[in-house]
């Protein structure tokens, strides 16, 4: 355990040595997987504790819903619309409930939902690692890389080390901004460059292309989802 944190700590500061070490280990895939799961589990626990703390310092969503709904109904425009349109109240209540429920699922923590982080964080990290590793390996090989599939997964597992910053999720409401994203991208660049022994320009391209592919896939999925949502609302 301690050894995993030491290697992740050194990888965090973009030193080539830990990436070489993992690339040349006997079982790079398994070593990477172990490291990834340890870090993701630690972050998952931090998120769970932070979520429970957030629940403890938040009022009940039902109380908040009631206050907001009453405030809206006290406004002049609501009275005018309510008087002019038949069934305005019931339609408003239905739509308000739908919107508020959607927002409160993101905004308000629950103890059960927080504890789920212990499982969802490692699973998500694992899926991202497997997906990104696959694309990163393909592009690195296209650009002349020499690492095996297992070695790519080993070194890209180290690139998860900036996720350690998410341990700050212990404190409710902490926002990390760009930091984890840009740091992870930097680690992936070093991982591809050190793991595949390619020049910086090729390593950079091989690092950025998986983001482009994933971004395009997400845009398409988002577009389809939005179209389905709009169709559902309009019908």
């Amino acid at each position: 355990m301690k050894e995993s944190f030491v290697i992740a700590w050194n990888a965090l500061f973009l030193k080539a040595a830990p990436y070489h070490q993992l690339r040349d280990s006997e079982k790079p895939f398994l070593d990477g997987l172990k490291l990834l799961l340890i870090i993701a589990a630690a972050v998952g626990i931090a998120r769970a504790v932070g979520g429970i703390l957030n629940w403890g310092i938040s009022p009940s969503p039902d109380d908040v819903r009631e206050i907001i709904q009453e405030t809206i109904k006290e406004q002049g425009w609501y009275a005018e619309s309510s008087g002019a349109v038949e069934d305005y109240d019931s339609v408003f209540n239905e739509q308000f409930d739908m919107i508020f429920t959607g927002i409160s699922m993101i905004t308000f923590s629950t103890v059960g939902g927080s504890l789920l982080n212990v499982i969802t964080t490692p699973v998500t990290a694992l899926l991202v690692w497997l997906g990104w590793g696959l694309l990163g390996h393909l592009f690195a090989r296209i650009f002349g890389g020499d690492a095996s599939f297992k070695q790519t997964y080993g070194v890209t597992a180290l690139a998860i080390s900036p996720m350690l910053i998410n341990l700050t999720a212990l404190i409710p409401g902490v926002q990390v901004g760009w930091l984890v994203f840009i740091w992870t991208m930097s680690c992936r660049y070093v991982a591809i460059k050190s793991g595949h022994h390619i020049k910086w320009g090729r390593a950079l391209t091989a690092t950025l292309l998986p983001y482009v592919v994933i971004g395009l896939l997400m845009a398409v999925a988002g577009g389809v989802g939005m179209a389905v949502f709009i169709q559902g609302v309009s019908s």
């Binding site: 703390l53 310092i57 910053i165 700050t168 404190i171 409710p172 409401g173 902490v174 926002q175 990390v176 901004g177 760009w178 930091l179 984890v180 994203f181 840009i182």
Partner: peptide, 18 residues
């Protein structure tokens, strides 16, 4: 206390990110 700590930590992390 937690909100102040959260704001404090977020400011530093966002600054580092930028």
């Amino acid at each position: 206390i937690l909100e102040s700590l959260g704001d404090f930590t977020s400011t530093i992390l966002k600054g580092m990110g930028s």
